[in-house]
């Protein structure tokens, strides 16, 4: 049983929604954009006579990049190809232009000009997507709006639930068992150091480029950063108690089947349920926003 306790759990209802939570609703202009994107995805390819902005130009190169077909995309300002994109405008198949690519002089001979024309936006285009029950442009507009909003709302809810979680940890009051906190953060810091080493990252090199850190300094930094994770365990227990969530026999059995028992299992369960409840609170809150 965890010794550190929450003495006063902050009220989640008092935590304001941060202003930087992305807007999840999709307006009709955005739906227009999504429908146009569908038309572009189903574009018809034709051969062009003379290079225009928006084409893909397949070239043979001399002087540089001779080992490959050189692709140039006029109008897209691909880094390193800006000069070549302009130089090729108006060129036809078989024409050669002298220009520059990735800083090197090069001669490009046009082999092929591919032009993609967006498909017409009509019911036939929608039917090509083979979405159950969606066979008209109007139905597709409704479908894509709902699907995009669902995705956006889920992402925004994740952002918001993280903000609610962090605020609960920060703003709640605790009676901290210093010995327990020290033992927990010490163990976690050593595990973190091991993980860094396995990933090939040297934590002894500080970000500000000053003197190398000793092992003790690295561990001290890790322990400081892990303190909020430790407090989060206490917060999750208090939050679950407030929400009427208990780690009962069925839940214990499930965790034991996965090799996790005792305090570790209980902490894992409480944290997981806390995140789940905060996510639901976030979804409800977002649903209520204009």
């Amino acid at each position: 049983m965890m010794k550190t306790k929450v003495t006063k759990l902050y009220d989640v209802a008092l935590i304001p929604t941060p202003e930087d939570i992305p807007e999840w609703r999709v307006d009709e202009a955005a739906v227009d954009g999504l429908v146009k994107a569908l038309a572009v995805q189903h574009a018809v390819e034709t051969q062009g006579d003379a290079v225009q902005t928006g084409d893909t130009v397949f070239c043979a190169a001399r002087g540089a990049l001779e080992d490959r077909t050189v692709l140039v995309y006029p109008g897209r300002s691909i880094p390193g190809a800006e000069q070549a994109e302009k130089a090729l405008l108006g060129a036809g198949c078989g024409d050669t232009v002298k220009t520059e690519l990735a800083g090197s002089p090069v001669s490009l001979t046009v082999q092929r000009i591919v032009r993609r024309t967006p498909a017409p936006i009509d019911d036939r285009l929608v039917r090509e997507e083979k979405i159950d029950g969606v066979e008209t442009v109007a139905a597709y507009r409704a479908y894509i709006k709902e699907k995009t909003q669902e995705q956006n709302r889920s992402l925004s809810a994740k952002h918001l639930s993280a903000a609610l979680h962090d605020a609960l940890v920060e703003k709640s009051d605790y009676q901290v068992d210093e010995e327990e906190q020290e033992a927990w953060t010490d163990k976690a810091a050593k595990e973190m150091l091991k993980m860094y080493e396995q990933e090939g990252i040297d934590p002894h090199i500080p970000e500000d480029g000053t003197d190398f850190l000793t092992d003790e300094e690295v561990l001290a930094q890790f322990k400081e950063s892990l303190r909020s994770q430790y407090l989060s365990l206490a917060m999750s227990r208090a939050f679950c108690e407030q929400q009427g969530v208990t780690f009962g026999p069925e839940e214990q059995k499930l965790y034991a089947e996965n090799g996790c028992t005792g305090d570790e299992a209980e902490s894992g369960f409480m944290e997981s349920k806390t995140w789940e409840i905060l996510y639901n609170i976030a979804m409800e809150r977002l649903e209520g926003t204009k």
């Binding site: 994107a37 995805q41 574009a43 692709l71 992402l155």
Partner: peptide, 21 residues
Amino acid sequence: CGACVMLEPVYKEAAADMAGI
């Protein structure tokens, strides 16, 4: 993966725009 969802429309746009790849 939230970052994957964010990349999706950008990747789709590039795929629609850039023949030869």
